[in-house]
Design a protein around this nucleic acid. Structure first.
Lengths: 204, 204
DNA sequence: CCTGATCCTGACCGTCCGGTCAAACGTTTT
DNA sequence: AAAACGTTTGACCGGACGGTCAGGATCAGG
């Protein structure tokens, strides 16, 4: 919406620290479960100083979510209708899994928002997200009709990719508990497994 | 742990009402985001009356979680080593998906707990859950080695089933936003898709 | 070195939070 | 009918919550 170029380097540094701290707290406890004192402590600032940079708890949360959806949908946007179908979809899976590995807190922040009924990004889901998915689903349906991939419901295929990749970020604790300490990095196993899964699903 | 047979029918009714209300509130807002006033209002009781039946907010939450894990793991326990491999796994998928459809709040309660780092059921994950999964993973690995299903990492296969089925409960709002109102019940499409997916994945 | 703008803080406010308690209300038992 | 028990409530407590404010510290430019 509004361009927000922080004037000074102090502003830049502190706003970054606040958003970083807020990401940690919001992603773990949800909006209502998070407290400004906790965010302030995590950011190394006093609570009034927090509110010097952001007008309210809501504003911090909104800033976080706004920046999130863009980067979150980028991997899907990059799905190329002109590319090789299976390689394109596998590429999307890999990019999405990499995001789960590299930005698990962002994934959990998003999960929290949806779990609570998407009170703040509901409209964006109905609008921007739906239209992007519809567009890419049409591409996949085209591949399907042309016999270049096996017959598959494009919408549920996309849901499958989301579910399978985000699971490793959102349920990280459970995954590690079940695998135990001696079975290597969960994400390595996940990548091999997901490539197998989607290859077998999509190969005609 | 302790057997808790409610003495009177009033106790039975009110305890049920409280747990029902608490499930609604905890599953939407997480433990810290939920308030006793909200639960009390939802249950049609006064806050002090709530605390007549349960000693604390924690106790309500614990009661909910304790009952949850049992029913949550039942579908996996029912996986029969003596049955037909693919039908057994498809049956598990169907049972788990049915739970997402019929008990979405329970699924979200569990998701919230894991998102927060499993502070209350961490030990249970390391113990009971891990050993059950290990046991069933061995069964699946046996099927795999015998050539009765295609080669697959059993642990990540189980993760896939969890991720794919629970997604439709936990991310229900997003799924419905993307599908729109005119594409029928999400769970019907999900069942067809998941049967296809796991059949293609597992058929040797 | 002065001055104006930016940055930061201690003290504070009203509200809501989880939880307590004594007393009143209902119901069952004798 | 009254004693005994189970149930419900209004009033209240100390602490934590989101947020405000006046003023002090710090920094930049002249």
């Amino acid at each position: 919406m509004s361009s927000d170029p922080p004037r000074t380097r102090i502003q830049r540094r502190n706003r970054r620290a606040i958003l970083e701290a807020a990401l940690a707290v919001f992603s773990q406890h949800g909006f209502r479960g998070a407290t400004l004192d906790q965010i302030a402590a995590e950011a190394g600032l006093s609570k009034p100083n927090l509110l010097y940079y952001f007008p309210s708890k809501e504003a911090i949360h909104e800033t976080l979510l706004a920046g999130l959806l863009e980067t979150w949908l980028d991997p899907l946007r990059a799905l190329d209708p002109a590319g090789d179908p299976i390689e394109e979809i596998l590429g999307y899976v890999r990019r999405k899994l990499a995001m789960s590995r590299d930005f698990p807190r962002e994934s959990r922040l998003f999960a929290n928002e949806i779990l609570q009924g998407a009170p703040r990004i509901g409209p964006t889901l109905d609008g921007e997200l739906k239209s992007l998915v519809d567009e890419k689903a049409a591409v996949i349906a085209g591949w399907s009709a042309a016999g270049r991939i096996a017959d598959v419901d494009p919408w549920h295929l996309i849901f499958s990719i989301w579910a399978l990749t985000q699971h490793y970020a959102d349920f990280d604790v459970q995954v590690r508990a079940v695998l135990g300490p001696d079975r290597g990095d969960p994400f390595d196993g996940a990548e091999r497994h997901l490539v197998t899964l989607f290859t077998r699903l999509l190969t005609p």
